[in-house]
Simulated scan of single mutants.
Amino acid sequence: MIFGIVTAVAAVLGVLAVVVLALLERPHVAAVLLGSGMVMMGFLRGAWPGRPWFSARNRWFDALVFALVGVAILWLSPWTAQIPPA
């Protein structure tokens, strides 16, 4: 139970940090933080038995999707530095 609350609070704080970084015109740092968080959620989903709040389907399928999306965001993150400020 406490692990679920801790991960939920960490996820909310991570999303807020990404939004703040994006608003402060730091899109590359925001993308790296988002991608790293997705990869970390993939590892957590692979290690956490049962059905936590961030599960959707099969445990290994969830972990794979989290990790692949996170790696894709990290791979594409250098191009966010090319975005001109508004």
Rank of each mutant, 00 (worst) to 15 (best):
Val32Gln: 00
Pro84Gly: 00
Arg45Thr: 12
His28Leu: 14
Ala47Thr: 09
Leu33Tyr: 02
Leu68Asn: 04
Ala8Cys: 09
Phe66Gln: 07
Leu68Asp: 04
Arg51Pro: 03
Phe43Val: 11
Ile73Trp: 14
Leu24Thr: 11
Gly42Pro: 02
Leu34Ile: 05
Glu25Asn: 13
Phe61Asp: 03
Asn58Gly: 07
Ser36Leu: 00
Met40Tyr: 12
Arg57Cys: 09
Met40Trp: 15
Ala30Asn: 04
Phe3Ser: 14
Leu68His: 07
Val12His: 04
Val32Met: 01
Ile5Ser: 11
Leu44Glu: 07
Thr80His: 13
Ala67Lys: 03
Ala47Glu: 05
Leu24Asn: 09
Gly70His: 08
Val18Lys: 06
Val12Lys: 00
Thr7Asn: 12
Leu68Arg: 03
Leu21Ile: 07
Leu33Asp: 01
Leu24Glu: 12
Gly35Met: 11
Pro27Leu: 10
Met1Asn: 03
Glu25Leu: 12
Val12Phe: 14
Gly37Ser: 02
Met38Thr: 03
Leu76Phe: 13
Met1Asp: 03
Met1Ile: 09
Ile2Glu: 08
Arg26Gln: 12
Met41Phe: 15
Ala72Asp: 04
Ile83Tyr: 00
Arg26Gly: 06
Val9Ala: 13
Met38Tyr: 02
Gly70Pro: 04
Pro52Thr: 14
Val71Lys: 01
Leu74Tyr: 11
Ala47Tyr: 01
Gln82Glu: 13
Ala31Phe: 03
Asn58Ile: 09
Gln82Gly: 05
Trp48His: 13
Val20Asn: 06
Ala86Tyr: 00
Trp60Phe: 15
Ala22Ser: 14
Pro84Asp: 01
Gln82Val: 08
Leu23Gln: 07
Ser77Tyr: 01
Phe43Arg: 03
Ala67Phe: 15
Phe3His: 12
Leu76Met: 12
Asn58Asp: 15
Ser55Pro: 08
Leu64Ala: 15
Val9His: 06
Trp60Tyr: 15
Phe61Ala: 10
Gly4Val: 03
Met1Cys: 02
Ser77Ala: 15
Leu44Tyr: 13
Gly37Trp: 10
Ala8Thr: 07
Leu74Ser: 09
Gly14Ser: 01
Pro85Cys: 07
Gly14Leu: 04
Val15Arg: 04
Trp48Asn: 08
Trp79Pro: 03
Ala86Arg: 15
Met38Trp: 05
Ala72Gln: 02
